[in-house]
Amino acid sequence: MDDPAQGKPPTFWQMLQSVLAAAFGVQSNKNRARDFTHGKPSHFIVLGTLFTLLFILVLLGLVKLALHLTAA
C-alpha cells in the first residue's frame, strides 16, 4: 500500500477498505494515519453511511427471508 508520508490521498478502494476495517475494528495504524492525514472526512462519512444502510438492508432481507421460510 501507499506510505502515509507520500502525501497521496487514498483511492476509493483504500477508503472502502478503511470503512470496512473500521466497521470490524481491525484498521491498521498505517492506514489510519494515511486516512487522517490525507483523507477527506466527507468521503469517509458518505462511505460509512452507505455501508451502514447497506448492512441494515441486508440484515432486514435476511430476517424477512428467515420469517418467510419458517412460515411455510
Rank of each mutant, 00 (worst) to 15 (best):
D2F: 03
H38V: 00
G48W: 10
L20C: 10
A21N: 09
M15F: 00
V26N: 09
Q14T: 04
A66C: 05
A71Y: 06
A72N: 09
A66P: 00
A21P: 00
V19C: 05
D3W: 13
M15N: 01
A5Q: 12
L54F: 14
A66M: 08
P41C: 03
I56E: 02
A22I: 02
M15V: 06
G61V: 02
P10G: 02
A33R: 15
K40N: 09
I56R: 02
V63S: 03
G25N: 04
L67E: 13
V26A: 08
T70C: 05
D3A: 15
R32N: 04
Q17N: 09
A5Y: 08
P9Q: 10
T52C: 03
S18T: 13
P4C: 07
A71M: 03
P4W: 04
F24A: 06
L16Y: 07
G39K: 10
L60N: 06
F12G: 00
L20M: 08
D35C: 06
A72Y: 01
V19K: 04
K64R: 13
L65K: 14
T49I: 12
A72W: 03
S18W: 14
I56A: 09
M15A: 10
N31C: 03
I45F: 13
T11D: 08
P9R: 13
V46M: 11
P10V: 03
T49P: 01
F55Q: 10
G48V: 04
L57V: 05
L50A: 12
L16S: 04
A71S: 10
N31P: 00
F44H: 12
I45S: 08
V26L: 07
S18P: 00
F12T: 06
A23M: 07
R34S: 07
T70S: 14
P10Y: 07
I56K: 06
G61Y: 03
H43V: 01
N31G: 00
V19E: 06
V63T: 14
T70A: 13
A66G: 01
L69Y: 08
H68Y: 12
N29L: 10
H38A: 09
D2N: 06
F24W: 06
F51M: 08
V63D: 05
R34I: 02
A21I: 00
T52Q: 09
P41W: 06
H68F: 13
L50Y: 05
T37Q: 14
D35Q: 13
L50M: 11
Q6H: 10
V58Q: 11
A66T: 09
D2P: 15
S42F: 11
L67K: 15
K30C: 01
R34W: 07
A22K: 11
P41F: 11
N31Y: 01
L57S: 13
V46Q: 01
A33W: 07
V46A: 10
K64A: 12
I56G: 01
F51E: 04
V58Y: 10
L59H: 05
G25L: 03
M15C: 14
D35R: 12
V19A: 08
L20D: 06
